[in-house]
Design a protein around this nucleic acid. Structure first.
Lengths: 217, 217
DNA sequence: AAAATAATTTAGACTAGACTAAAAACAATA
DNA sequence: TATTGTTTTTAGTCTAGTCTAAATTATTTT
């Protein structure tokens, strides 16, 4: 249907739109796609021609409704495959991304539907991000940064903000993973580090960590 | 590593080599790839440059050892995915091919290895074709038409060539299905019908049937 | 063995998607 | 408002992979 490149542009535009809540600039997109601004301009013209985006010179770009629908479907596939890799094939959550980047482009309605069913219609991927349903509907996740919780609150780790390999490996080392229960014991005023109880053990968490961990409760 | 096109050429050459047991002609390859002979010539030159094939003008092409290894790995992935689709995702054996054609190009050693494990190290795909192991070794024989077996040979029904409703219903009626054991008792010279033992009972099978049933042994 | 036919390769051109370098538009500041 | 700096677009080029048409080599027939 659409080329690999087109799909990657759609996905990138989608994510940037979500992040900044407005039109996406050519430069921002070029950076995200790891390409040059001039290439982006070329591509946007072609995609506008195909009604995937709304683009006017010098005015940034937005997904059209067709483009958004397509992008969400790619995101849906990406996240379903991530669940598959972690739950069925023993991948750890920091290994799944690059494989899912490939799998998300597989074209088969039936495959996606059956995979969803096989996995038990999961609501979140291994990073805690919500999985759109077959109609593209995203039931918005109520998650907060650990940083924003106050003493005596508790919740379950559902995702990460920073998903670099380094961060994910750090979490692994400290036995922090999806689903673990975290309770705030106290918060230091001066450096904003927290004393938390994680699965029974008490640990100190710096703000650089707590600002990157999503908790739902 | 290699482009989608290169992988598809490798696979096509591999299958044609298996079929005819000699170098593959430019035209045969063009037909298989649904492209023009001139395009094939261009591609073969590039692939020879990369040491994937042995090619000399006007002399046809053969896979190099590197090319063969790569091709077999693609075939391995294709067949593993077919098993996955049929056994886990409720695909029927005639629906899997085009999806597997996409999935076979996913690059991840770990994915392939874990998928293999997840499926219990299957030896054959849903069409009865053998699945190469991680080292590229193919241990099992390929499937044959029932028609080509000789008395005292036996095997297991692994597929059909003709998949019309009529034929499948005929098979149903005679309790012939995937997985049943079939042994050849004798073969009539004049009409080439066969006397076979199927799951204990002896039956006569006409050549129009035996020419459409695949057996592995 | 020459002629006819078939198979293959070459030459030149096209498209998608990228690039560099330069020009144009927009934004910010004096 | 004029100037400077940043962002975006244009113009022209490149590569992978394809194509058509023409030329070349192989094969078959006479």
């Amino acid at each position: 249907m659409y080329s690999l490149s087109e799909e990657n542009y759609l996905k990138a535009i989608y994510h940037l739109e979500q992040l900044h809540k407005k039109e996406v600039s050519t430069n921002a997109l070029a950076e995200k796609m790891d390409t040059k601004a001039s290439s982006v301009t070329d591509m946007l013209k072609k995609m506008a021609e195909k009604n995937l985006v709304n683009y006017k010179k010098y005015q940034g770009v937005q997904l059209s409704s067709l483009g958004k629908e397509t992008a969400i479907n790619i995101v849906r596939k990406h996240r379903l495959w991530e669940v598959f890799l972690v739950e069925k094939l023993n991948f750890s959550w920091d290994e799944v991304h690059e494989v899912a980047e490939q799998l998300e482009h597989i074209q088969s309605k039936k495959l996606t539907a059956e995979l969803d069913k096989f996995l038990g219609f999961p609501k979140r991927d291994p990073h805690g991000d919500p999985i759109p349903d077959a109609q593209g509907k995203i039931t918005l996740a109520k998650k907060k940064l650990l940083f924003d919780l106050v003493p005596s609150e508790e919740g379950v780790c559902v995702g990460v903000k920073d998903s670099t390999k380094e961060f994910l490996q750090y979490l692994d080392k400290h036995a922090i993973s999806l689903g673990v229960k975290i309770e705030i014991i106290e918060k230091e005023a001066f450096d904003q580090s927290m004393l938390v109880k994680i699965e029974g053990t008490i640990k100190r968490i710096t703000s650089s960590i707590s600002k990157n961990l999503y908790i739902s409760y």
